[in-house]
């Protein structure tokens, strides 16, 4: 059981001057894929950092699997918005650190890491250091570093933001395949509305700062009813009328927030 629950969570920074989150109630079910969209600076990363155990609520509680979050841990793998790869470690060393921490035998580790390198298409770069890679390649290493842990909960902060359009599509389709094959609880932050609709079971829309939950859009029921699963390619899904409808709805809702228009 690895649900995530935000229980009346507020979070302020710096002696309360900056209120990032205001009374957020949000429940992500076990093995559910939830995407958060919202204007820049509305508190999306803050939500993720609370679930990861890097920050703690000013009031309210954050629970993962019914236990209050007290510290970071490998049961909740994080893909950081700014990668946070270790510059002094090679691609392989970055990816395998989590497995070493788990005392996995060397041979098994090697196989798992090679699979991950294959998945992110970085064969030939195993011994490269992060500074020798492009931003997109670094981001893929950060994704692999989280995937190899095979965690119950994946926390991803704009993980595809630095990728070129083609690579992004490949990674998105791969994430969907992974999610179907081996479902896990995912909290996924993005600025891409289409990405959110394509990947998520539900999409949470946040207001401008201080971030509140504005609306939650159920994608899963429509995806299943309209049979999106029949299409393996993202562009085919994006052409479906039901997809366009959801996307436009979320766009409008977001736009109100960005321009600050009254409802």
């Amino acid at each position: 059981m690895s649900s995530i629950r935000f229980d009346a969570v507020s979070k302020s920074f710096g002696a309360g001057q900056v209120k990032a989150l205001d009374d957020v109630d949000l429940a992500i079910a076990d093995k559910e894929f939830l995407a958060i969209v919202g204007p820049s600076g509305c508190g999306k990363t803050t939500c993720l950092r609370l679930a990861a155990g890097f920050e703690f609520p000013t009031s309210g509680r954050v629970l993962v699997g019914n236990a209050e979050v007290r510290e970071p841990g490998p049961d909740r793998a994080v893909v950081f918005q700014q990668f946070a790869l270790f510059p002094w470690k090679t691609v392989v060393e970055n990816i395998e650190l989590g497995l070493r921490n788990r005392n996995m035998p060397r041979e098994e580790r090697r196989i798992r890491v090679m699979e991950a390198v294959e998945l992110i298409g970085l064969n030939g770069y195993e011994g490269a250091y992060p500074h020798q890679l492009s931003g997109g390649m670094q981001q893929r290493v950060a994704i692999a570093r989280a995937y190899v842990l095979d965690p119950q909960v994946l926390l991803m902060d704009e993980p595809f933001g630095a990728l070129d359009a083609q690579t992004r599509v490949v990674m998105q389709e791969e994430l969907v395949r992974l999610a179907r094959r081996n479902p896990r609880t995912v909290l996924f932050i993005t600025h891409g509305v289409e990405e959110a609709v394509y990947l998520a079971d539900r999409v949470a829309i946040m207001t401008r700062r201080p971030g509140r939950l504005k609306e939650i859009v159920d994608v899963k029921s429509i995806r299943e009813a309209e049979g999106w699963e029949r299409y393996s390619r993202i562009e085919d899904v994006m052409d479906l009328e039901s997809f366009v409808h959801l996307r436009t709805h979320i766009w409008r809702s977001l736009r109100e927030e960005k321009t600050g228009a009254a409802h």
């Binding site: 155990g53 970071p72 490998p74 994080v78 700014q82 946070a84 650190l97 921490n101 788990r102």
Partner: peptide
């Protein structure tokens, strides 16, 4: 960020 990444990976 490096310390957070290490902690999240369960580094002793």
């Amino acid at each position: 960020r490096y310390i957070e990444a290490a902690e999240m990976l369960g580094t002793p």
